[in-house]
Simulated assay, not measured.
Amino acid sequence: MRPINIGLTQEQRQGVINLLNQDLADAYLLLVKTKKYHWDVVGPQFRSLHQLWEEHYEKLTLNIDALAERVRALGGYPIGSMEGFLKVATLKEHAGDVPTATGMVSNLVEDHEQVIRNFRDHVDRSAEEFHDQGTSDFLTGLMEQHEEMAWMLRSFIEGQAIDSDGRQSVAQAKTPVGV
């Protein structure tokens, strides 16, 4: 087999592959949670959440394929088993837990925010530690998608009054939390 000659050493490529496989594992866990919540959500917000989560799991599915293909482009092999995903993922399962609709949204916000923090670290490490600006750029694009998904989910549970200039309403700001 001809060695890969793309301006990165085997060690640099392997470092990036390890980061990508962690991102792939987190993406799979997030996909499974999103699908499960899509199936199990009930209540007055059923339709809107059901549709939102369908949009999200479709994006996640595309991102999973892109992550795996990036691993292959660098000469590695993507993790391909749930056992493998669970070993390297930073996200945790909530097996057996079926929260309320708001609890589901909150769990997904936390997971997306963890993924975003991981991407920020992986973007920097890809560029600075492994000198792979291509992967850094690729991960930046994925991070931006997760930022949008997290924002949509946060918006669902925030529900604060906002003035026309974008600031929180003065009356709302003075109301104690939980009142």
Rank of each mutant, 00 (worst) to 15 (best):
G15S: 05
V16E: 02
N21R: 07
N21M: 06
D23F: 00
D26H: 06
A27E: 01
V32I: 08
K33T: 04
T34C: 00
K35Y: 08
K36T: 13
Y37A: 04
H38L: 05
W39G: 12
V42D: 03
G43T: 01
F46A: 05
R47C: 04
L49Y: 01
H50C: 07
Q51C: 00
E58T: 12
K59T: 09
I64N: 00
I64F: 10
I64L: 05
A66I: 00
V71E: 01
V71G: 03
L74V: 10
G76Y: 04
G76M: 04
G76N: 07
G80N: 04
M82C: 12
E83G: 15
L86E: 15
L86S: 14
A89Y: 04
K92D: 09
H94P: 00
D97S: 12
P99C: 06
P99K: 12
M104P: 03
V105G: 07
S106Y: 08
D121M: 07
D124M: 04
S126M: 01
A127S: 15
F130R: 00
D132T: 09
Q133E: 14
T135Q: 05
F138G: 09
L139E: 10
G141T: 14
L142F: 11
L142H: 11
E148I: 14
A150D: 11
W151I: 14
W151R: 12
R154N: 11
R154K: 15
S155R: 14
F156L: 10
I157Y: 05
G159F: 13
Q160T: 13
I162Q: 09
D163C: 05
D163Q: 08
S169D: 15
S169A: 05
K174D: 04
K174L: 13
V177R: 05
G178M: 01
